[in-house]
């Protein structure tokens, strides 16, 4: 698929001298969901703000469907919708009026049917005549999404869409995003909830200190970096790891009642069969065993910490 968003060596240095973006280069394909993952202050919001026109880039370029975000900003911005991190809404304004206003400033003619459609999809139609301040937090966030969708953008930026949202609403938000993807909208989301990226994103870009550390398909990333852990619970406690097991990378729990074995799911030989044989040779009786796979969060923490040590 063709890239709808092409970012080339984008830099942003704030007046105080702080370099928030250190030459970001990234292609985002039409129709995909890209998760932008990074710790606080990594440059996620700066990157989004720069692409949307809220922040001026210091150097570098970016195009949306071929339109340069600076020289052809009118064409470029018409294709972009932005859902900010903060709930930025005028408390006294009405829900429906809000969407008509957003559509208007993006240069689209008034379209009651379109606005109704967006409101219905976001389960806000019943609340159309309410003032924003009368809505719950989750509804306000949906109003923000509705405003961003009112002008029918092809690219949607979601800056931490589920921050401070309860579990039920978060799932609801994921459904909304999934539906948008089905309609062909390209989605770039930043998030602190790594399970969110794991559940939704086609690709993950890891950003830290204003630099993109890596971009990979979510599934590949999980496979490439994913480790599995096998935890074996023992009937009798062990004081130390017995000799026949010393070849394996094992960790004994403090109470001596469980052993943890770490292995790579991608390796030809996981060593599990051998380990099991070694257990019986050593005369160790197993009570139970279970495996767990590392989440993107652990991968991410590992990656960021690893980079930190390298510096």
């Amino acid at each position: 698929m063709a890239a709808i968003l092409e970012i080339r060596d984008l830099r942003k240095v704030y007046d105080g001298g702080f370099e928030a973006l250190k030459g970001v280069t990234l292609d985002i394909e039409e129709g995909e969901i890209l998760a932008l993952l990074g710790p606080n202050g990594a440059g996620k919001t700066t990157l989004i703000s720069t692409l949307c026109g809220i922040t001026e880039p210091t150097s570098g370029t970016a195009t949306v469907a071929g339109y340069d975000i600076k020289t052809q900003y009118r064409e470029a911005r018409k294709l972009i919708g932005l859902v900010p991190q903060e709930i930025n809404l005028e408390p006294f304004s009405y829900v429906e009026t809000n969407l008509h206003f957003s559509r208007g400033i993006f240069g689209k003619p008034r379209d009651n049917a379109k606005v109704e459609d967006v409101l219905r999809k976001l389960a806000l139609w019943e609340k159309r005549a309410n003032r924003v301040r009368e809505l719950s937090g989750g509804m306000k966030r949906r109003v923000l999404i509705g405003k961003a969708l009112a002008h029918e953008p092809r690219v949607l930026f979601l800056d931490e869409p589920t921050a401070g949202v309860d579990v039920g609403l978060r799932k609801e938000m994921w459904d909304v995003v999934a539906e948008l993807k089905e309609q062909g909208v390209t989605i770039i989301l930043t998030t602190h909830y790594i399970e969110e990226a794991e559940a939704m994103a086609d690709r993950v870009a890891v950003i830290r200190g204003g630099e993109i550390l890596m971009v990979e398909k979510t599934a590949d990333l999980m496979r490439r970096l994913g480790c599995k852990e096998l935890t074996v619970e023992l009937r009798e406690p062990l004081a130390e790891i017995p000799a026949p097991l010393s070849d394996y990378d094992l960790e004994l729990a403090a109470d001596g009642l469980s052993l943890t074995y770490r292995y790579d799911t991608q390796a030809d030989r996981t060593g599990i069969a051998g380990l099991m044989r070694a257990f019986s040779e050593a005369g160790i009786i197993l009570r139970d065993l279970h495996t767990s796979q590392s989440s993107l969060e652990e991968i991410f923490v590992g990656l960021v910490e690893g980079e930190g040590e390298a510096q």
Partner: peptide, 17 residues
């Protein structure tokens, strides 16, 4: 000033205007 205060000014800045 009010859009600056409530934060809704982001929309004006990101619109094709």
């Amino acid at each position: 000033y009010f859009p600056k205060f409530t934060g809704t000014v982001f929309e004006l800045l990101s619109a094709p205007i």
